[in-house]
Write a protein that binds this DNA or RNA. Structure first.
Lengths: 256, 256
DNA sequence: CTAATAGTGTCTATTAGACAGTATGTT
DNA sequence: AACATACTGTCTAATAGACACTATTAG
């Protein structure tokens, strides 16, 4: 019978696209996440997930939408629950629990600038045997940490990710981020959620880039095209994306 | 910046097995859930999920384990998070949020009686077009309610279940139960979690009964045996389960 | 005997992976 | 010309569904 502070933390994912040295090839894609620099204690000056208190007459989902709009200007973005983080000492100010949500956004829709204190960080995962090396960078600053993958239940196929080498991300956000990425990976494999990250029109090649980026593995070209064909509509428009054959622009086909 | 009460609600699932009229056939299986009768306001006298306050120096998972032990005597049972329920008016006493967990137990392990106020209810789902009719019964009392399946996002394959005909279950537990059942169904399909519901030794026929019970569909016999063969070990022991050929007892084979 | 489940085998349809081969742009 | 991707087609391997067939028990 104890009262707790109720907050929400947001995993805002997007896709960054940047030219690389080879002008003939497609621009490289990166999975990116929006972080904000904390302007007050605790963890003042450190990077953290956007988040905040859930207000008295608000549910966490609404609070998350409010914060997303504040940081990006976007409204009515589809979100899904990632989980609850309630470890006892996670906030030095006192018992605080966080209900975290994941939002997938199409970065090409961002007309206005994102909020002053916010910045996109590219995510790179290096996976060995049991450890995963997470590298976040905004081009200038780097945030690196290492987590260990631990099997909680073989029957449940359930894994936990324990941070074994810390960075200076605030709170327990290292843990929230890696779990969020793994849930994203799982959802991308099992649903059509990837299209929330894509612009309205895209080429099959770009879509394949994003899939293999998030899944962390190369995909077989012909098999990918076969499977994805039922989920997209060809717009008929062509685009030139580099020193090679132009591609048909497609868009997502909503099912029935 | 508002403090809330922090509670947990538990979905304790098990399998009930009962003889039926046909003595030649296997005993019928039922998916069952443990409910407790509330002995105080609000909702005094009504059935509800077991649950309670998360203590000051406790996380919700530990609170759930504590409550599970209190109700069933079982310890160290594997649990997984179902979600957070935080709608504003869900508890008439004031703002209260609930982190809910699901525990799958093997009812044959229950040596001691379950707690006085608790009772197992069999679950029956009748699914039509968009509506699902949920029927819970403990043999004497019946709790019936109807939920509507609503698609939140086609891309995310995400569904919400809104109660359209209420029963007298306490709080928002009607909603928690149906979501839990759907998560269970999903997990049973994608993981080996079903073995948490089974006794240590079982026949392939019994296992198939439980699978089709939870998935809500008949399974093809030969295909089922083919797939399940890699997950179980034959113990060599035989059992007679009715007026038909005896069966080999199997147990779960942990992977690598 | 019959009903009911246990267990095996085989054919077919579907799907994923491997990979070759052609097309068409830019550098 | 060389390179990089776009796109198609074909072979093969793996897997799921359909279904027939045998085995063995209790009623």
């Amino acid at each position: 019978m104890s009262k707790v502070e109720y907050t929400t933390d947001l995993l805002i994912f997007g896709i960054d696209s940047r030219e690389n040295d080879n002008l003939r090839s497609l621009p490289s894609k990166y999975l990116s996440i929006l972080l904000v620099r904390r302007n007050k204690e605790p963890f003042k000056g450190q990077w953290s997930l956007p988040g905040g208190y859930v207000l008295e007459n608000e549910i966490a989902l609404d609070a998350s939408q409010r914060i997303l709009t504040k940081e990006t200007g976007l409204k009515d973005v589809y979100m899904q629950q990632v989980g609850i983080y309630d470890s006892i000492k996670r906030d030095p100010r006192g018992r605080t629990i966080s209900s975290s949500y994941m939002a997938l956004i199409d970065r090409t829709l961002l007309k206005q600038e994102i909020s002053m204190d916010a910045c996109w960080f590219d995510i790179e995962l290096q996976e060995n045997e049991d450890n995963i090396n997470i590298k976040l960078t905004n081009g200038i600053e780097k945030i690196n940490y290492v987590v260990k993958r631990e099997c909680i239940s073989k029957k449940g196929n359930d894994y936990d990710y324990r941070v074994v080498e810390h960075s200076d991300l605030a709170f327990d956000h290292e843990e929230i981020i890696i779990r969020g990425i793994m849930i994203l990976r799982d959802k991308v494999w099992n649903t059509d959620i990837v299209f929330d990250l894509m612009p309205k029109e895209f080429t099959i090649g770009q879509l394949k880039q994003v899939y293999s980026l998030i899944l962390g593995k190369e995909l077989v070209n012909s098999a990918f095209r076969r499977v994805i064909a039922s989920k997209v509509i060809e717009t008929g428009k062509m685009v030139k994306t580099g020193g090679h054959r132009p591609s048909v622009l497609c868009s997502y086909k909503e099912r029935d």
